[in-house]
């Protein structure tokens, strides 16, 4: 493996109309590491995650995934926008898991997982099914292959969503508050799956409010507020001994 970071962000700015949501984000995620992104609601965490797979366009700054510029090609000092198909190909290498699961409602768990490999990677259907069955087994849903999302619990839905993302064999996984929509007793089963991925060396960027999880799994914790990174470092430092007043204030509220 090369030593170049999996994600490198420099001075990312993002505006929605007049509202400046990201105001110069600098952040690095090393390959094989787990980074937890924490911060108050509205601070721009989801927006930043969406920028990484180009679901949102940035207005200033540079963003690289695995050494390649996101959304653009650089020639000399000119930037050329990538074609839709090129953007799609890059997105296929980045897995994303959403707060509200976003499972395809008209497909069974198995169909959800094989859809993108068959359509995007042109995988053979039989092989895709074998692989999907294996993945669903790994997240503890071997019994639920032919069940529609509406018949699954929140925790089960989120585990299918994780399997669906893994089926594309991503080199980076983005999680946007994967447990925030879950009943408290279902949080653990999803976090366990994510911990398993961390143990396997998957590179992950996880937006979360689960401080216990961040402390246990994260290599780096990044605290964001109001569109900027306020503080980042190992969990013991950021969570155990925060330096900035805003971090202390936030942790005081969350941990209270």
């Amino acid at each position: 493996m090369s030593t170049q970071p999996m994600v490198k962000a420099e001075g990312i700015h993002k505006r929605f109309g007049r509202l400046e949501v990201l105001r110069g984000i600098d952040l690095t995620v090393q390959a094989g590491e787990v980074t937890c992104l924490i911060g108050p609601s509205g601070s721009g965490k989801s927006t930043f995650l969406r920028c990484i797979n180009h679901l949102e366009k940035i207005q200033a700054g540079r963003l690289w995934v695995d050494g390649e510029l996101v959304g653009y090609r650089q020639q000399g000092d000119r930037l050329y926008e990538l074609k839709e198909s090129e953007v799609a190909r890059k997105r296929a290498e980045i897995g994303m898991v959403f707060q509200h699961f976003n499972l395809f409602g008209h497909m069974t768990a198995l169909q959800n997982v094989i859809e993108a490999p068959c359509l995007v990677k042109r995988a053979k259907r039989g092989e895709a099914i074998t692989r999907a069955t294996e993945l669903l087994g790994r997240v503890g849903l071997a019994e639920k292959l032919h069940v529609y999302p509406s018949q699954l619990s929140g925790g089960q839905k989120q585990r299918v969503a994780i399997a669906r993302a893994l089926a594309m064999e991503p080199k980076l996984m983005l999680f946007d508050e994967p447990t925030s929509a879950l009943d408290p007793e279902l949080v653990g089963e999803v976090l366990d799956v994510i911990k398993g991925l961390a143990a396997d060396g998957m590179t992950m960027l996880v937006v979360t409010h689960e401080m216990g999880f961040a402390r246990e799994v994260a290599d780096t914790v990044v605290f964001m507020d109001d569109g900027v990174v306020v503080e980042s470092g190992p969990p013991e430092a950021v969570l155990g001994n925060p330096q900035h007043a805003r971090t202390q204030d936030f942790l005081g509220k969350v941990l209270a």
């Binding site: 679901l55 839709e84 997105r91 959403f98 976003n102 395809f104 594309m168």
Partner: peptide, 17 residues
Amino acid sequence: DEGQGEAAQSLGMTRLQ
């Protein structure tokens, strides 16, 4: 729901797919 399209795009599907 918009999330359906976003999930599909994040998996590498094009707009038409």
